[in-house]
Computed example of a mutant assay.
Amino acid sequence: MSSTLNITELREGGSQDLTEVIRIMQDAFDPRFGEAWTSAQCLGMLSLPGVWLVIASIGGSDVGFALARSTGDEAELLLLATRPAVRRRGVAGALLRAIIAEAQNRGVLQLHLEVRAGNDAVRLYRREGFEKVGERKNYYRGKTGQAFDAHTYARKLP
């Protein structure tokens, strides 16, 4: 990791980190798009086999996380979020690369994700080798009931 990013730690997370994960998600995800998960959804996912959580900290404060799951030779990035104050500082990229590395350690051959159409994160995913493979119409529902499409991406792993 680059010291210029001031990332002091990328660590494995768990259910003990749920409160902070929810806070980061609330800061990161605009409620009008309906992307954030509830605490119960996160806790339920963390209890499943093949699921892992990575937490990023700067200066001792948790500033981002990534949640993924694997089954067989495939994995899915379920959530990736960073606090708005640390965006464009390499935190999301570091988290994504940590998920990719762990997926490779688990023998994963292909990593999947989905993202809301128009989300700026697409640039990061493309830069890290993901290619668009599909679309889910009206996948997200925001607070007002408005629907937003999701795009699915995949990346083959060596």
Score class of each variant (00 low, 15 high):
residue 71 T to V: 04
residue 2 S to H: 08
residue 12 E to H: 13
residue 60 G to M: 07
residue 80 L to D: 00
residue 87 R to D: 00
residue 148 F to H: 09
residue 100 I to R: 02
residue 109 L to F: 00
residue 30 D to H: 11
residue 138 N to K: 11
residue 147 A to V: 05
residue 57 S to I: 03
residue 94 A to N: 08
residue 32 R to D: 09
residue 114 E to C: 07
residue 142 G to T: 10
residue 118 G to Q: 01
residue 141 R to V: 14
residue 148 F to K: 01
residue 100 I to K: 05
residue 66 A to K: 02
residue 33 F to T: 09
residue 119 N to S: 09
residue 38 T to Y: 11
residue 35 E to Q: 15
residue 85 A to M: 10
residue 34 G to D: 09
residue 84 P to K: 12
residue 63 V to H: 07
residue 64 G to Y: 03
residue 24 I to M: 04
residue 144 T to R: 11
residue 131 E to M: 11
residue 81 A to K: 02
residue 17 D to M: 08
residue 94 A to R: 07
residue 25 M to S: 15
residue 115 V to I: 15
residue 43 L to E: 14
residue 79 L to N: 12
residue 10 L to C: 09
residue 18 L to H: 12
residue 51 V to Q: 04
residue 27 D to F: 08
residue 144 T to H: 07
residue 51 V to S: 03
residue 140 Y to L: 04
residue 33 F to A: 07
residue 149 D to A: 06
residue 85 A to C: 11
residue 10 L to N: 06
residue 110 Q to A: 08
residue 19 T to Y: 06
residue 154 A to V: 05
residue 102 E to F: 04
residue 18 L to R: 10
residue 71 T to M: 03
residue 93 G to K: 12
residue 48 L to K: 14
residue 22 I to M: 11
residue 148 F to L: 02
residue 123 R to Q: 12
residue 12 E to I: 13
residue 57 S to H: 09
residue 24 I to G: 02
residue 48 L to C: 07
residue 140 Y to Q: 01
residue 41 Q to S: 14
residue 77 L to V: 13
residue 118 G to M: 02
residue 129 G to D: 01
residue 24 I to C: 13
residue 151 H to W: 13
residue 154 A to M: 02
residue 28 A to L: 07
